[in-house]
Amino acid sequence: MDPVGIAEKSTEQFVQFFYGSYDKQRNALGNLYRDSSAILWNGNAFSGAQQYSEFLGRLPVSHHEIDVYDCHPITAMTNTQGATGILINVTGTVKYGDHPNKRTFSQTFILAPDEIQAGNYYVQSDNFRFV
């Protein structure tokens, strides 16, 4: 399969897993990040999975609705097995707790191919912003 096809399939799986877990089982998200992951959540910077997981655990229950997502392979991030990095852009709405209004958000991920577990990716960069 070509890099674009792999990126599209991987992105579809990632988006479904990420937002489904975010809304129902946030503790599973920490496994997607590394200590070296760069994370920016609405202007708040986090370094690594542990600090980010603790922050997510303090947020109220959420419900995401994804409007659109797009992806692009990053061939400059090709690993020794030939897997490329993936740039993902997501736009949607999210409602936190019993707040009556949904908020529009944009989120950009850079997924890097995992050198240890072939076929897997980790979040190298995550930038979330309310619009």
Rank of each mutant, 00 (worst) to 15 (best):
Y19L: 10
Y19T: 15
Y19M: 13
G20N: 12
S21H: 10
S21N: 09
S21E: 01
S21C: 03
Y22E: 13
D23L: 05
D23N: 07
D23T: 08
K24V: 05
Q25S: 06
R26G: 13
N27M: 03
N27G: 01
L29G: 02
L29S: 02
G30L: 07
G30T: 11
N31C: 09
N31G: 00
L32I: 05
L32E: 04
L32Q: 01
R34V: 01
D35Q: 05
S36M: 04
S37E: 09
A38P: 05
A38H: 13
I39T: 10
I39R: 11
L40A: 05
W41V: 15
W41C: 11
N42L: 10
N42C: 06
N42F: 10
G43H: 01
G43D: 01
N44R: 14
N44E: 14
N44F: 10
A45V: 08
S47A: 11
S47Y: 13
S47F: 15
S47D: 05
G48W: 08
G48P: 00
A49H: 04
A49E: 00
Q50E: 07
Q50S: 15
Q50R: 10
Q51S: 12
Y52V: 01
E54A: 14
E54C: 14
E54H: 07
F55N: 08
F55M: 10
L56C: 13
L56N: 15
G57Y: 02
G57V: 04
G57L: 03
G57S: 08
L59Y: 06
P60H: 11
P60V: 15
P60A: 12
V61D: 03
S62M: 08
S62C: 11
S62V: 06
H63Q: 11
H64F: 02
I66P: 02
I66N: 14
I66G: 13
I66F: 04
D67E: 12
D67T: 13
D67Q: 15
V68N: 14
V68W: 03
Y69S: 06
Y69I: 06
D70G: 15
C71S: 09
C71G: 04
C71I: 07
H72F: 13
P73C: 05
I74Q: 03
A76E: 12
A76W: 05
T78L: 02
T78P: 00
N79M: 07
N79Q: 06
N79E: 04
T80C: 06
Q81R: 04
Q81E: 08
G82D: 00
A83M: 09
A83D: 11
A83S: 03
G85E: 00
I86D: 00
I86P: 01
L87P: 10
L87V: 11
I88V: 03
N89D: 09
V90K: 06
T91C: 14
T91Y: 04
T91R: 08
T93N: 04
V94P: 00
Y96E: 07
Y96K: 03
D98S: 15
